[in-house]
Amino acid sequence: MQAVFTIERKAETGVEPEDVLTIKNLYKSFGSNHVLIDFNLELYKGENVAVLGKSGSGKSVLIKCIIGLLTPDQGTINVLGHNIGELNIHELDEIRTKVGFLFQSNALYDSMTVRENLEFPLRRHWIKLTTAERTGKVKEVLNNVGLAHTIDMMPAELSGGMRKRIALARTLILDPEIILYDEPTTGLDPITGKGISILIKEMGEKYNTSALLISHDMKCIRMTADRIIMLIDGKCYAQGTYEELKKNNDEKVKQFFE
């Protein structure tokens, strides 16, 4: 059973859960625009945490700092026990293979087929795999996202929901320990969005991953997140389960649940 570590459960069990991602005192500004101000976060093994905030609140900046696409002005980010700021590029690349990233725009390589998109990370990092093993792995993840028949199609031939599933399959192919989801349901219709939310939950359980999900889609967050962190004014303004935050009387928190 997937472990769920809310703050309360941590206190209840008395067992110190293993943290896979820790952010301490994170600051990031773009000129005079202070996006993240003393932001703190902990993600435990097997846990799904959603960061909820308005558009432009710095959610994507946060996730890009975690994966090393942006450099924070101040603060530390520890991923799987490694301080991202202290790693050289080769060590960072090594860590990146253990952290999947699902882009808001899917970011599928549009000059490659679905098979080539999925094989790309395998060819680069699991170089000892034979062709048959590589094909087997590709088929396995495609089956898991329900799109085995698209293996030789180009991304342009797929619908938005299918592209999202393929992007998720590519994220899963290296068996990551953490997955970062950047607005996974944005731009999708409610039914497809619900399907993606279910898939995120199922894949998390199947691959035993921890997930940090950036979104403002309350339905998706409710379905997938064990804990929600509210990013307001660049800070971790409030946190708790969906039900806990729904009962919160703070005006800034309440507006997300209305």
Binding site: D93, E94, R96, T97, F103, A107, L108, Y109, P121
Partner: peptide, 16 residues
């Protein structure tokens, strides 16, 4: 590729 974040996707997959 830059606009559609494919270059970022390549970077986060551990490819320079």
């Amino acid at each position: 590729m830059k606009v559609t974040e494919q270059i970022d996707a390549m970077e986060v997959s551990g490819t320079n």
